Computed example of a mutant assay.
Amino acid sequence: MCDVYAIKFSELVKIVERLRKECPWDRQQTNQSIKNNLIEEAYELYEALEEDNDQKIIEELGDCLLQVVFHCIIKNENGNFSLIDVIDNLIEKLIKRHPHVFGKKQLNTAQEVLSQWDSIKQKDKKSILEGIPKRMPSLFRAYKVQKRLSKVGLEFDDAINAETKIYEELSEFKKAKTTEQKKEELGDVLFSIVNFARFFDIDPEEALHISIDKIIKRFEYIEKKLNGNFGGVSKELLNKLWDESKNLT
């Protein structure tokens, strides 16, 4: 089986290397020009995983793997590092962060493993907030930042205090005069809502996705009722159809 993995992986690398030489589009790409592709492919994989569609998962995992290989080959061409460097670094990290598997330490629960992982990971960082990507979706980023801060005691005592903070920030938003001030205060409102969600173990990113999907479903009902023709439709009819659509969810 290991030989099959090695052969297939080698085949993939050779194909991408050939594309870099012979395909005009692939040849002109840089790490910067294709960086957004990985995000798009990751979201497509996430969707396939949610659907638990094996064929789509196979395809999207392949697309994500392609991005990894593509980035490594470009870097290797420029003399920075190779795919082997990436694999070696990953192997070293996995062994280091699993002393209960590759060493003599004994752990019995998944929570113990997570605590150990965080502890080992933090030793390599200068700040407890280091390693949270700036380009991560904002709600998810806020969630991660708050979880890190809670580990050192920067946390509300309970959900009631977290809820009160939301209204405090809303009050600040209402007092804001300029667009920039309103933007900043609205950000504080959203940050407070994320904090509130954490007390109920709710992922705010996931919660918002559910709401968006619900709104889309309701709109599609209205669109179907009107045959896609919104010209001249009264506000009253739209509201009536919207109320009807709520019965769908």
Rank of each mutant, 00 (worst) to 15 (best):
C2M: 12
A6S: 12
A6G: 00
F9I: 08
S10K: 15
L12A: 12
L12H: 12
V16C: 06
R18N: 13
R18C: 07
L19H: 11
W25A: 15
W25E: 14
W25T: 15
Q28F: 03
N36C: 04
N37H: 14
E40A: 14
Y43M: 08
E44G: 10
E44T: 09
L45M: 11
E50Q: 14
E51I: 05
D54T: 13
K56L: 13
I57S: 11
L61A: 12
G62T: 13
G62I: 11
G62C: 10
C64L: 14
L65W: 13
F70M: 04
F70R: 15
H71C: 07
C72K: 04
I73V: 13
I74G: 07
N76P: 02
E77R: 09
G79L: 05
F81Y: 15
S82I: 02
D88Q: 12
D88T: 04
E92P: 01
K93R: 13
K93M: 05
L94W: 04
I95W: 01
I95K: 15
I95D: 05
I95L: 09
R97N: 10
H98Y: 05
H100G: 00
H100E: 15
V101L: 14
F102P: 08
K104F: 02
K105L: 15
Q106E: 15
Q106R: 13
I120V: 10
K121D: 11
K121A: 08
Q122A: 10
K126N: 12
I128C: 04
L129Q: 06
L129S: 06
E130W: 03
G131R: 08
P133M: 06
P133A: 05
M136A: 09
A142L: 09
L149M: 11
S150Q: 10
V152M: 09
G153R: 05
F156Q: 05
D158I: 00
A159Q: 05
N161R: 08
I166H: 06
Y167C: 00
E168C: 04
E168S: 09
S171D: 12
E172P: 03
K175H: 07
K175A: 09
K175W: 01
A176T: 03
K177R: 09
T178N: 04
T179C: 00
K182C: 02
E185F: 02
L186T: 02
G187V: 02
D188K: 03
D188H: 04
V189W: 07
F191V: 01
S192D: 02
S192A: 15
N195H: 06
F200I: 00
D201K: 09
D201Q: 09
D203V: 03
D203W: 05
P204R: 02
E205G: 01
L208R: 08
I210S: 07
S211H: 06
D213E: 13
I215D: 13
E220V: 00
Y221G: 10
E223H: 11
K225M: 10
N227A: 06
N229A: 05
F230W: 08
G232K: 06
G232W: 10
S234N: 05
S234W: 07
S234E: 07
E236D: 14
L238G: 14
N239W: 00
N239E: 15
K240Y: 10
K240H: 12
L241M: 10
D243A: 14
D243F: 00
S245R: 04
K246P: 04
L248Q: 12
L248M: 09
T249R: 07
